[in-house]
């Protein structure tokens, strides 16, 4: 099987800072990481390769620093990696991003070899739209299944995908080629191995494609190819809270203070009394 995995190189922090002058996020000085939700996708692709042979190709559309992320994936066992990078791709929303990715996948299919499966992560931590998988599938006119937990080959041209939704577990038979996206809790990723790192140093299995190679109409990429624009950003307004803080003597004191305080609070007391009365004999 030839499997492509999508990867995004994202700011790896939970404590974002805002530029007080511009009101935008400060990304400088924030170290980047492989989008954590892409890890189960990479693991699934590698497991399929372990089981059925073939190759796994990592793909990202990004400015060049994402090469560090691709190196990491090669360290995990991905066979080769492609960075798609060009100024005319900058400022893309998900429609324009998925367009470039779909065109890169078509080029891989034509020039490197037939692509059977594309695996994406559940969502990115910096934009978390969960769009790219479905949109890429739509450009390619391939089927798409989301929230995959596992996949196995059932024929040479079909896979069986198990997925878990809010209220059901489903098995899907999916014709190849196809696009799937994994659930963030689907699989535990394998660690980077020294052997793979050495192979990377020797073989350098990493290619960069610019628009010289992809030859896309610039009206379909970057800002021009993006129907959505950010009109403005505003601070999330602060929720007014009472901020009464109590430092108790001990647990009992804390519990007594809390119950008394809640019973004096009009809303909280109503809800609490209602719940305790309904609560039966528990």
């Amino acid at each position: 099987m030839r499997i492509i995995v999508g990867m995004k190189w994202v700011p790896g922090t939970t404590s974002v800072r805002i530029d007080p002058k511009t009101g935008t996020l400060i990304r400088e000085g924030v170290p980047s990481i492989v989008n954590p939700h892409d890890m189960p996708a990479i693991e699934l692709a590698l497991q399929l390769k372990d089981a059925y042979g073939g190759e796994v190709i990592a793909l990202t559309m990004s400015p060049p620093p994402a090469i560090r992320g691709l190196e990491y994936l090669i360290g995990m066992g991905v066979d080769r990696a492609i960075l798609v990078s060009d100024r005319v791709y900058a400022g893309a929303d998900t429609l324009a991003t998925s367009y470039v990715l779909a065109k890169a996948i078509e080029k891989i299919d034509k020039e490197i070899g037939k692509v059977d499966l594309v695996v994406f992560g559940q969502e990115t931590i910096d934009s978390s739209t969960a769009h790219i998988g479905a949109q890429t599938a739509s450009w390619l006119d391939w089927p798409y299944i989301y929230y995959a937990h596992s996949a196995k080959l059932i024929d040479n041209n079909k896979i069986l995908v198990e997925r878990v939704l809010e209220n059901a577990i489903e098995d899907w038979e999916v014709d190849l080629p196809a696009v799937i996206a994994t659930h963030m809790k689907a699989l535990k990723p394998r660690p980077v191995r020294l052997l793979n790192k050495i192979r990377y140093k020797v073989e350098k299995p990493l290619t960069t494609w610019t628009n010289n190679e992809l030859k896309l109409d610039p009206r379909c990429t970057g800002l021009k190819g993006s129907p959505t624009i950010v009109a403005k950003t505003v601070d999330v307004p602060e929720v007014p809270r009472k901020k009464v803080i109590y430092t108790p003597k001990d647990g009992e004191d804390a519990a007594k203070w809390l119950i008394k305080t809640l019973m004096e609070d009009e809303k909280a007391s109503k809800a609490l009394i209602k719940a305790l009365k309904e609560g039966g004999g528990k």
């Binding site: 109590y246 119950i259 305790l276």
Partner: peptide, 28 residues
């Protein structure tokens, strides 16, 4: 969280929750 809560208690949950369970039972 203390600057984003209505009522905050500074303390160890291991002491507070068991006591709270008792208080809830007697309130019930």
């Amino acid at each position: 969280i203390f600057s984003q809560a209505d009522y905050g208690i500074v303390g160890d949950y291991k002491q507070i929750i068991p006591a709270l369970i008792k208080e809830i039972e007697s309130l019930k």
